[in-house]
Every structure is written in structure tokens, then in C-alpha cells.
């Protein structure tokens, strides 16, 4: 134990020096390596998983591709670095990854103390509870004395403790490492309640033998803005990732889709579309990217709505509604600063 403690102390000591060294000009490093090292989940339905050909698919994986398309001009030049909830920040901070698109909640501590820069929110989530219908529970406040399956190393673990403390009810946590483990444990009845982000609950419930026997309780006990993060200290790189996300949002707002982007890139009457797609002005060069970077992004993965519908939208097995993730013009929270 002492040796382990020493190692972590040493790690912390060199963190500051190492981090700044690794931070210099990530964009150049990515160009030099010819690939973007993108940290993703080891497996989360709809967000990141491998298909039968061994290719990463999912909502987060597509944002990795979008970033690679913008930076390297080729969406296939991504090296996916799978990370568990515990290792994701170390991998990013040690320079083993360039950007983190891993359904990671943007919190104060992670932003300030873990030395990350969160550059936006690609999915607004919130923590919920799922219980078997047979339990007869109508509200999370009825859960006194319940056993709760909970993933360790996540914000959900901390939210849970807060929620039960403020409501002065007792619970017994069953610590779990992965989503799949919680599913198994919950179905086997080793815990009464399964809690994680509401999107995850819906995704998991869709795979149950009898989804109708389980209810998701109405309480959403936390704000979980999931978004991409980069190492602190390389603002230019943070800008790049931020505006890749913003470009997909703006594209949806302006009606630019995978299908029509090539047509629109020839020039339109809308100056904002022209600026984005590089036919007017030179926004790309300001980021150090090609003139047609947005064209590459949209033709690779489509706009935000298309990515959403393809992987987690109502037509998929995950079947999530847009909800908070609708554009601000449709009553949601997704809002991008203007391309100007």
C-alpha cells in the first residue's frame, strides 16, 4: 500500500509538469500522428459500442468521427481509446488521448480540479430510478431501506448519496463496475432499484425480457450535462472541439444535412450558411483548419439531429425523445453561439 501511495504521490507531483508538456499544440500532434485519439466508453448502448465488424459505433463515436473529419479531413482517422469510468481522466491527462467524448458529466470539480476543459454539452441528461413494477413504488421518496445498484466512480454515485441524505431516507448501495453488471444484478433481484442517467435507464430497460414490468420513477434527481472534454491549457484545441460540436448544432438549426451539404456548399443566399461552409469569409483558417471543415463534418456524420436519430432517437431500440436535447427553437436547451 505504501508503494502504491508513493506512486500516486509521484504521479500528482509530475502531473503539473507533464500536463503542460503534453498540452502544447494538440492540433499539431494530431496532424503529425495522422489520427485522432478519441477516448470513448468501453461499452454503453447507443453511445459507444463495437459492431460485428469491430468498428466503434454510437452517438459519442460519431462525434469522434466528426472531430477527425474537421481536423484531418477524414472521419475514419480515429483511434478509439476505450476507457472505464475510473481511468478516463488519467488517460486524457497523461496524453494517451486527445479528446474525451465519453458521456462525461461536466461538473465543477472535473472542470477545475481534475484540470479538464469541458467545451460543450452534446447530451443533457439527468439521473433517474428504475424499479420493478411489482414493488409498487410510486416515488423515489418511498425507497426507504432499498438496495440500490450503482456504478462506482461516477457522478450518479454522489448524487444518490446527496438525494437520500436530503430526504433523510436510508438505502444500501450495491457497488457495480459496468452498466451490464448492473443490468444482470438488477434483473437477478440483488438490488431493488437501479439508478443511472435516465438515457441509460431507458436503453437498459429496452433490453429486458419484459420491459413493461419495470417503471422509471418520475424524479430526476440531478443535472447531468454530458459533453466533450480536453486537457486544460490548450485553448486552441478546446476551441476546435467546441466548434465542431457547435457546427453540428448550427447545421441542424440552418437545415444543413448530410444529404444537402454538398449542394449548399456551392453557395447560398444565407450568409451564415456560406460562412460555415467556407464559401464566404475564412472561419476555418482562424481555427487552423481547412476552409471546408464543416462540409467534411456534416458529410461524414450529418447534423446533430441526424446523429441523434441514428443512434439514440425514437426510431432506434434505445428510443429516447429529444426532450432537453431539442434545439432551443423547439423548446430544448441545445443552443449554439453564431458562426460570425
Amino acid at each position: 500500500m505504501k508503494k502504491t501511495a508513493f506512486i500516486s504521490a509521484a504521479a500528482a507531483a509530475v502531473m503539473a509538469i507533464g500536463a503542460t508538456a503534453a498540452n502544447a499544440a494538440t492540433l499539431e500532434d494530431v496532424r503529425k500522428n495522422g489520427e485522432l485519439r478519441c477516448v470513448v466508453s468501453t461499452g454503453l448502448a447507443g453511445f459507444a459500442y463495437t459492431d460485428s465488424a469491430g468498428v466503434y459505433q454510437g452517438f459519442d463515436a460519431d462525434f469522434c468521427r466528426a472531430t477527425a473529419a474537421a481536423v484531418l479531413g477524414d472521419p475514419s482517422k480515429v483511434k478509439f481509446v476505450p476507457a472505464t469510468g475510473k481511468t478516463r481522466f488519467t488517460i486524457l491527462n497523461s496524453g494517451e488521448g486527445d479528446v474525451l467524448w465519453r458521456n462525461t458529466t461536466w461538473t465543477f470539480v472535473r472542470d477545475v480540479d481534475v484540470k479538464l476543459t469541458f467545451v460543450g454539452v452534446n447530451y443533457y441528461d439527468g439521473q433517474g430510478f428504475m424499479v420493478p413494477k411489482s414493488l409498487g413504488v410510486k416515488s423515489a421518496k418511498d425507497l426507504d431501506g432499498a438496495t440500490v445498484c450503482i456504478q462506482t466512480g461516477t457522478t450518479t454515485e454522489l448524487n444518490l448519496a446527496d438525494f437520500f441524505r436530503t430526504n433523510k431516507i436510508k438505502y444500501e448501495p450495491v457497488p457495480i463496475e459496468t452498466n451490464d453488471e448492473s443490468r444482470t444484478n438488477y434483473l437477478a433481484g440483488r438490488c431493488d432499484v437501479y439508478t443511472t442517467d435516465a438515457s441509460g435507464l431507458a436503453a437498459t430497460r429496452s433490453t429486458f425480457p419484459t420491459p413493461k414490468d419495470h417503471v422509471i420513477l418520475p424524479e430526476i434527481i440531478s443535472k447531468e450535462p454530458l459533453g466533450p472534454a480536453v486537457r486544460q491549457g490548450d485553448d486552441a484545441w478546446a476551441d476546435t472541439v467546441r466548434w465542431v460540436l457547435n457546427a453540428t448544432l448550427a447545421a441542424e438549426e440552418l437545415g444543413i444535412t448530410k444529404a444537402n451539404v454538398a449542394e449548399l456548399a456551392k453557395g447560398t443566399n444565407n450568409p451564415e450558411i456560406n460562412r460555415m461552409l467556407g464559401t464566404e469569409g475564412d472561419l476555418g483558417a482562424m481555427l487552423g483548419l481547412e476552409k471546408d471543415w464543416v462540409v467534411k463534418v456534416i458529410s461524414a456524420v450529418g447534423n446533430y439531429g441526424e446523429i441523434f436519430d441514428r443512434h439514440i432517437g425514437p426510431s432506434t431500440d434505445i428510443a429516447l425523445e429529444r426532450g432537453l436535447n431539442a434545439l432551443w427553437t423547439n423548446g430544448g436547451l441545445q443552443y449554439t453561439p453564431p458562426f460570425r
Binding site: G54, T87, S206, T316
Partner: peptide, 25 residues
């Protein structure tokens, strides 16, 4: 798996997250 190399167990876990096959652990 802990350090992000997908051995047989890691591939299995990430395959389980495919919505088409989810839950066949």
C-alpha cells in the same frame, strides 16, 4: 481492459453494449 486494451473480455463487454444484442451477457 483497465488500461484500454480490448482483450476478449473487453470486446465482449463492448459488444454487449450494441443495442442489437444488448443483454446477452
Amino acid at each position: 481492459l483497465i488500461i484500454g486494451l480490448l482483450d476478449v473480455l473487453g470486446i465482449g463487454k463492448s459488444s454487449l453494449a450494441d443495442a442489437q444484442w444488448n443483454g446477452l451477457s
